[in-house]
Nucleic acid binder design. Structure first.
Lengths: 373, 373
DNA sequence: CTGAAAGCGCTAACAG
DNA sequence: CTGTTAGCGCTTTCAG
């Protein structure tokens, strides 16, 4: 009842500064081509009135929103079990903020939400999308591509387009060969351009971990995989195989990225191959499960069995007994990269050089040595 | 170069259905007061054209955005170390989605961002804000209130307005008495209404934990506090004191919610009071630190020393040795509640019953028994 | 019940 | 350089 004082408009500022709306608009948007004294007058008027541009009105004419959607599918399992998600978001947020873009968060749970998200993205509310697709058979990424909105994926999507080297494939990092075969074909590229994604070098990181184990003189090196419906798990497995060309197949046992899965896998491993002397687990969580079983069965770590994880999830890796040697990925940086790639792509739209398409990026990993290997 | 087919407008739909724009608008917005046959015709046209309303144009006239900002301050420490943040977001997202509202995420790092956030909120881009204020002396909440936008806080803010019972105080849950004194006065209520927040019953949960310890026959019960610049830590300490009226002051030692802090505190505790037979830690992380020190010093848990945590952070509580007895809070539900409260408040704006102000809510906690106590 | 008309606040040609 | 003039796509009186 007391606050009917709606915010001042361009009109008001113009009146106060004694210029036209157009001039105020110019000043507000950078002030190029306006003589200094006028700029000054307008600035003052803006200041005095506390003028803030109305984004809706602006979008209506520019067709830009300076907003990007971040789509996270099925935030139940892994995404929410660890800080991965939060760190990634932080990186994204920083980059978007630096470029005056807003972050619209879209969380989905199962198929009901897919339509909603697709509609939203196709509805032209945001300029682009950053999407996290964890599972190979997730239909969401396809739907999103169908929406025809510029998109960058977090993690390599599971379709073929995303595995090819070259223009639309990942930038070569340490000479990674073509990755695992596609799970299903790429959705029709509906003007949204080629698949662009940011992923950490899962394969290379895995190789480094296994080589470290080899360097330690281990010979019976096992691998506890992640959930193999996720490309990260597949890529890490590929990395393991790169080094252990002719590994005893019994040394590879399927896990699911959880501590319980790690325990189960470790038990089976010990059962099948009692002579195992090293384990590379697909992530820290499953490594912690393996560690527990090892201890329970009286095997010393790392003396009897060396263990390496993946992720460097501090809350786990630093707290295990012994602390976990693991492969670190710079998660926040990945988020920042995703945003940067998307923003660049959006810029291009406004006419820079339509030729060069942005390309996927694979970020390096580093081995963090602690006590377990 | 191929996709110039901009999305259809109301105009197009109207033409196709052979009605006026006004009629289409009515149908799209619920269809009240339009005869059935017309509704049908319009619906079909919308369908065929794949029409989606332009939100910018709509906002321009309605002054509503159907968007809510979620502000998370300084996502460095605790917020990002655990899934708390993600779960809360999930609850918020679900509720907002159910009411067709968008979630705009604003992450801040330190003071530079404060101005930006304040400007954004005052800029009328969103209808309301959900803000998480962790620290007592965080200036952000004040700034936000200054923006005069409807807001609901996550966690009890540290100013006096938020501690008073009654209209603007928390709904009484199990008869919680007035909480700790204010750290600083409430910012001037600039038309944004009284402080409304959602918090879990930190004090009550702490009481329950300590009573459980008492019920176990423990007599030398210690408390490792959280970072005391956060209301949650203060409230848990208050709960501890409620039960341990005249506890030996040496049994209360300051922690900081981290495992390292828990270790440090536990060592000090053991040093000061070797006869300690139970510990209530302010959260699971510090409890895990305490557990480690206890084991290292050869004390058995729970035989010699019983330990209880707070949060029921699965990734920690289920993995400690022994698994941790702890106090659970329904984090996702808290998020949902925050959103619901805000939405209700926004609805009221549009004229329902301006009289009854929404009130803060304190959600219950439950003790989860595992092996440590 | 339906249509016509008037903007919401801003940007972007186009003149001057 | 600066002002004038059109709308962007939608909702909302106001007539009919």
């Amino acid at each position: 009842m007391s606050e009917t004082a709606s915010r001042p408009t361009l009109e008001a500022v113009a009146a106060r500064a004694g210029v036209s709306r157009a001039t105020v608009s110019r000043v507000v948007n950078g002030g190029d081509g306006v003589r200094e004294p006028l700029v000054e007058r307008v600035r003052r008027a803006v200041e005095e009135l506390g003028y803030v541009p109305n984004q809706a009105a602006r979008s209506l004419v520019t067709k830009r929103h300076d907003a990007v959607a971040v789509v996270i599918a099925e935030p139940e399992t892994r995404v929410f079990a660890d800080p991965f998600f939060a760190l990634q978001l932080r990186g994204i947020s920083k980059e978007l903020t630096a470029h005056d873009n807003q972050l619209v968060l879209l969380l989905t749970e199962g198929r009901d939400d897919h339509a909603r998200v697709a509609r939203y993205l196709a509805g032209g509310h945001v300029d682009g999308a950053l999407v996290f697709s964890l599972h190979l058979d997730d239909p969401l990424p396809g739907l999103i591509r169908g929406a025809g909105i510029p998109t960058v994926f977090g993690g390599r999507p599971g379709w073929s387009d995303a595995t090819l080297p070259g223009a639309s494939g990942p930038a070569a990092v340490e000479g990674i060969p073509a990755t695992a075969p596609a799970a299903y074909p790429a959705p029709a590229a509906s003007g949204a351009g080629p698949t662009v994604y940011v992923d950490s070098d899962n394969r290379g990181g895995a190789r480094e971990a296994v080589r470290h184990l080899v360097g330690l003189g281990r010979t019976r090196i096992a691998h506890i995989t992640g959930a193999l419906d996720q490309t990260s798990a597949v890529d890490r497995l590929d990395g393991f195989r790169d080094v252990m060309r002719d590994a005893d197949p019994r040394l590879i046992v399927e896990g699911d990225f959880t501590p319980a899965g790690g325990e189960r896998a470790m038990r089976e491993l010990l059962d099948r191959c009692p002579d195992v002397d090293a384990v590379f687990a697909a992530n820290d969580l499953s490594a912690s499960g393996a560690l527990r079983v090892l201890r329970e069965q009286g095997r010393r770590v790392p003396e009897d069995v060396a263990v390496i994880g993946f992720d460097d999830m501090l809350i786990v890796a630093e707290q295990t007994d012994p602390p976990l040697t693991t492969v670190r990925q710079d998660i926040e940086e990945m988020g920042r990269l995703m945003a940067r790639l998307l923003l660049r792509r959006l810029d291009r739209r406004t006419g820079h050089d339509p030729a060069e398409a942005p390309t996927s990026v694979v970020t390096p990993t580093t081995l963090v040595r602690r006590a377990s290997a």
